[in-house]
Structure formats: structure tokens, C-alpha cells
Design a protein around this nucleic acid. Structure first.
Length: 453
RNA sequence: CGGGGAGUGGCGCAGUCCGGUAGCGCAUCUGCUUUGGGAGCAGAGGGUCGCAGGUUCGAAUCCUGUCUCCCCGACCA
């Protein structure tokens, strides 16, 4: 191809992009290594199920490969987070995993961070690190890219892998060394603006977790000298959660659709057990004090000029005086969320994915792939569900019914559609809801009416 | 990093104390019979026992070193 001269792309059917929104996936061609037995190294249920359901494979302590099915979940979670971040006015970018040590010397954190930071040296002897977070970098980028106070406020976010060399990684992806995180950073001219940016993220978090079908509790987190009351952790409630939470049961009554829900939630008591014990007195009457376990999946906080001052981010304000922007950062542990969701939603047979984050909407089981009539019907169901916008994982393998059902239960897709010899003559298939176990025999038309939109 | 435990076919384990040339279940492959909730029978393949030294006629087994993984604790999204 010659350079410097554009030529029109030849139009032709072979260049047209296929229109299917969700190409169906055949299990016979997929990579889904399921384990019948529980690996001895996995202690908690989410880790066990993630290994058994073929979501991840451990590569080293706290480091995981994401297999196709696990990646789907991670992507669905990321999509929801991205949508809600953009809705809250944050702008996406992407910063690298590797950062120069010099940047961290500017903030003084290079020495402060300790062995948890993975340090590297390149061939020229330059000191690098695998980023555990990005405050320094984003602050430097904004410093170098902003010329006027008029360009603020600004909230940037990215989704990127991070590395913290935990002393003891555990609980599978819940406490890995390498983890995927959404982190957002806000830059404001004054405290009122910073507070508004914080509020916007607080609301975005409520919406994000609700959109995933999760119950998330905002918990007041201890702050440093600058943070004031502007720091919250978001916990997914799960009986197996790592932290114990005490909160005002009135929180359970708050309607998230209500515009003043964030305000109400912020006013209601919720603390981690350790903080709760430390508090002078609990403002919640005993009969309203709820106690549950949770998994921290998000953390937002305001830290003022800590990094902007250290890195020399300053702008001339409208009156000519220098403004050092006020900043906050807002994290969601995306890979950890996968584990947290499973902790919150599983049963003895396997995972029970909430609809919004399931790797596929429907598991389609053809009980007789060698029977042309069953196969024709299964193919039709696949085609029509796909056309209706549902993602379908089609089990076309020649295996026994029990094994196929058990596999579907294990991977936890919200719906299972079974096409088999019993129903095929009458033109009916069986629909099963994973969460409840409820089953119905339906015609293909009724099936589409039920789950086809 | 302190304390504890474990490395033996893909997975789960036995064998280690009392050295004698590796075994069980599941999975895999072949055949037949089965076929709507992890089938039955018959046969087959697959392991330098984490690694490196040492002791011994002989080491999965004893000794020394080393690496890795897991659990409890402090730490953390």
C-alpha cells in the first residue's frame, strides 16, 4: 500500500461487518475448563467457584489469568462502571501500568510506600515501578495539560491493572496482587466544587452497584487530617464478607431512585466494626442498629492539595492569584467485584449471576446434538434469542444431560433453555430460572415473549 | 515478616514414621450398552514423586540446601 495517498475502500459484501449484536457461542468451540472437584488451594467459596467454573486460573500467588467466561464478567462490570462514570461527568483516559520512580519522588511517596510497591529497573538503569495507584501521574498530566482555571473542574478516570505486592495475597481475586481497578481523579478550584465532585461520584457509585443488581452500603471511612467527612467505603453485603459493619437499619429503607438518596444515606450511621468500637457513642438506638458483613469494593475520598501542591499543579485564578486545585480520588476494585458478587450470590450448585453482570444471558442446552430435529430447534432458538438481543452460550456438546445441566448450574447463567426429545415433538422447550430453580415448558414464541427483549 | 501446613499423572488424595524402583478415585482415549440432573461394563494412555546436592547396592521415603503454594496474624481495593 502506497503512502501519502488515500484511496477509497472498495465497497463489497465481503467488507460489510456482520450485524449480530451478540454472536452466539458454541460450547464445543469455547474454552471453558470446568472442574468437578474443588482445588485444595481455594479457601473461600468465590475462589472455589471461580476456579471450578472456569473463570480464572492462578498463575502465581495473587496473580490470575482471566479465562473467556471470567473476562466476559469483568467486561460487563467495566461497561457498567464506565457508563455511570461518564454519566457523572467523568472523562475516560488510560494511563500506563509502568511509571517512572521520579514521579513518585516528587510526591515523596517513593520512599513512603515501602515493599508493597513493585520496583523495576530498565536496561538503562532507570528506576521504574508497577503502579499501585495513579495520583501522581494524573496530577502531572493535568498540570502539563491545563492552561487556565476555566478548564476546571475536571474529573478523569481510567480502567487499568494495578499491582501491590501484598504481604499475603489471599481469597483469590478478592485480594490479589495484580488487580483491575477503575480510578477517577477530580480537580476543582474551590472547596464547594470539590464537594460537588465528591457528591457526583458518591451518586455514581450508588447507581453503579444498583445497576449490577447489588446491595452496596456506603460506610464512613476514617480520613487523614485533610479528608474531613469526605471519605466513604462502599461494601457489598455478603455473609462471608471480610469486614463487619454496623449501620442504621433506616438505610435499608432509602429509595435509591429518590433524588435526595445520597444526602439521606450520608446522614445515616454506618461504620466498620473497628471504627464503631472506637466511636465514643453510637447515635443509633439499639433496636435500629443493624449488623452485617461486607466486602469493600469501592473507596472514595477527598485529599485536597496533597498531590497538586507537591507536583506543582497551580493555575492563575480570575483575580490573578494562584489557585492550587483541590483533588479527590475514587476507586472501584473491578476484579475484586467479580469475587464479591459471587460471595453475595451463589448456592450449593454454583454461581448465581445477577442478570446485569452475567457472562451470557442464556445457556442453551441441546440434549441431542446428534438428532437433526432437536438440533434444528436448538439452532432456531439460538438464532431468535440472539436476534432479540440476548447473549447465548449454546451447549452443543455430545454429553449426558446431567453433566450439561450441572455445568450450566455451576457457571450460573440467569436462564437455561433446554431443547430435548421430550419437548421437541410438541415444539416446546424448557426454561429454567437459575436463581429460583423455577421451570416452565414453553413454545419458542412464548420463550421469546418471556426473555426475548 | 512471625507462626503453622503442603508440594506424588489434568483435579482430589494414599504411600514417607519402618528405603526395595509408584498406587487409588475423578478426568482423558477406544469399544459396546446407555441417554431429561455429573451412567455401566471392558480395555488403554499418562507421573525424571517441586528443584539441587548428599547418604546408600538401592531414595517419593533418610540428611542438607533451595524454590513455590496454602492457612493464621499484622497490612490492604
Amino acid at each position: 500500500m502506497r503512502r501519502g495517498r488515500s484511496r477509497p475502500v472498495a465497497a463489497g459484501p465481503q467488507l460489510r461487518y456482520p450485524p449480530a449484536a451478540f454472536p452466539p457461542m458454541r460450547l464445543s468451540r469455547y474454552f471453558l475448563p470446568l472442574l468437578k472437584e474443588t482445588p485444595a488451594t481455594a479457601e473461600i467459596v468465590s475462589h472455589q467457584l471461580m476456579l471450578r467454573a472456569g473463570l480464572v486460573r492462578q498463575v502465581a500467588a495473587g496473580i490470575y489469568a482471566w479465562l473467556p467466561l471470567g473476562l466476559k464478567v469483568l467486561q460487563r462490570i467495566t461497561d457498567i462502571v464506565r457508563r455511570e462514570q461518564e454519566r457523572a461527568g467523568a472523562v475516560e483516559m488510560l494511563m500506563p501500568t509502568i511509571q517512572p520512580a521520579e514521579l513518585w519522588r516528587e510526591s515523596g511517596r517513593y520512599d513512603a510506600y515501602g515493599p508493597e510497591m513493585l520496583r523495576l529497573t530498565d536496561r538503562r538503569g532507570r528506576e521504574l515501578l508497577y503502579g499501585p495507584t495513579n495520583e501522581e501521574m494524573v496530577t502531572a498530566i493535568v498540570r502539563d495539560g491545563i492552561r487556565s482555571y476555566r478548564e476546571l473542574p475536571l474529573t478523569l478516570f481510567h480502567v487499568q491493572w494495578k499491582f501491590r505486592d501484598e504481604i499475603r495475597p489471599r481469597f483469590g481475586v478478592m485480594r490479589g496482587r495484580e488487580f483491575l481497578m477503575k480510578d477517577a481523579y477530580s480537580f476543582d478550584l474551590d472547596e464547594a466544587g470539590a464537594r460537588a465532585s465528591y457528591e457526583a461520584q458518591f451518586l455514581a457509585y450508588l447507581r453503579t452497584f444498583a445497576a449490577m443488581g447489588l446491595r452496596a452500603l456506603p460506610v464512613r471511612a476514617p480520613t487523614g487530617p485533610i479528608g474531613g467527612e469526605l471519605s466513604h467505603e462502599f461494601h457489598i453485603l455478603a455473609d462471608t464478607g471480610e469486614s463487619e459493619l454496623f449501620y442504621d437499619a433506616a438505610i435499608d429503607e432509602v429509595d435509591l431512585a429518590d433524588p435526595d438518596a445520597p444526602q439521606r444515606l450520608r446522614g445515616l450511621y454506618a461504620m466498620e466494626a473497628e471504627e464503631h468500637a472506637r466511636a465514643a457513642r453510637c447515635p443509633v438506638p439499639a433496636e435500629r442498629l443493624a449488623r452485617r458483613r461486607g466486602i469493600e469494593v469501592g473507596h472514595i475520598f477527598f485529599f485536597g492539595t496533597k498531590y497538586s501542591a507537591a507536583l506543582g499543579l497551580a493555575l492563575p485564578g480570575p483575580d490573578g492569584r494562584t489557585i492550587t486545585p483541590l483533588c479527590g480520588s475514587y476507586g472501584i476494585g473491578l476484579s475484586r467485584l467479580v469475587g464479591a458478587i459471587i460471595e453475595a450470590s451463589h448456592d450449593s450448585a454454583g454461581i448465581v449471576w445477577p442478570d446485569a453482570v452475567a457472562p451470557f444471558d442464556v445457556g442453551l442446552v441441546n440434549l441431542r446434538p446428534d438428532d437433526p430435529v432437536c438440533t434444528a430447534l436448538a439452532d432456531e432458538v439460538e438464532r431468535r434469542l440472539t436476534a432479540a438481543g440476548r447473549s447465548v452460550l449454546h451447549d452443543d456438546r455430545d454429553l449426558r444431560a446431567g453433566e450439561k445441566f450441572a455445568s450450566m448450574d455451576l457457571i450460573g447463567l440467569p436462564w437455561m433453555v433446554t431443547v430435548g426429545p421430550k419437548g421437541v415433538a410438541a415444539g416446546v422447550v424448557e426454561l429454567k430460572r437459575r436463581a429460583t430453580g423455577e421451570r416452565h415448558e414453553l413454545s419458542v414464541e412464548s420463550l421469546l415473549a418471556r426473555i426475548g427483549a
